[in-house]
């Protein structure tokens, strides 16, 4: 029970920090913390053999998403500077 509460509190804290942060690139580490907490909770809520695949798919997908956002934002900032 303590484990689930820790994951939920960390998820809520990370989402509040995402909203409070102004800089776009510095929001992404907080989004990463939120994804870690949700990945852990997917395994904790439903312990089923396919849960490993679900947790890994969710984590890889969200990582790919933040990677794409960060690289597109960096490229666009470079173009805007020129």
């Amino acid at each position: 029970m303590i484990v689930e509460s820790i994951c939920a509190i960390v998820a809520l804290y990370a989402s509040i920090r995402i909203l409070a942060e102004k800089n776009t690139l510095r929001k992404l580490p907080f989004l990463n913390v939120l994804n870690f907490a949700i990945t852990g909770l997917i395994a904790l809520i439903l312990p089923h053999p396919m849960g490993i695949a679900a947790a890994a798919a969710y984590f890889v997908g969200s990582t790919l998403e933040s990677n794409a956002i960060a690289s597109t934002f960096a490229k666009q900032s470079e173009v805007a500077d020129d």
């Binding site: 909203l19 949700i38 997917i42 809520i45 956002i69």
Partner: peptide, 13 residues
């Protein structure tokens, strides 16, 4: 888009 990722993180559980 980042907030949309947060929305999805809340929906999938």
């Amino acid at each position: 888009l980042i907030s949309l990722g947060m929305l999805f993180a809340g929906v999938i559980p």
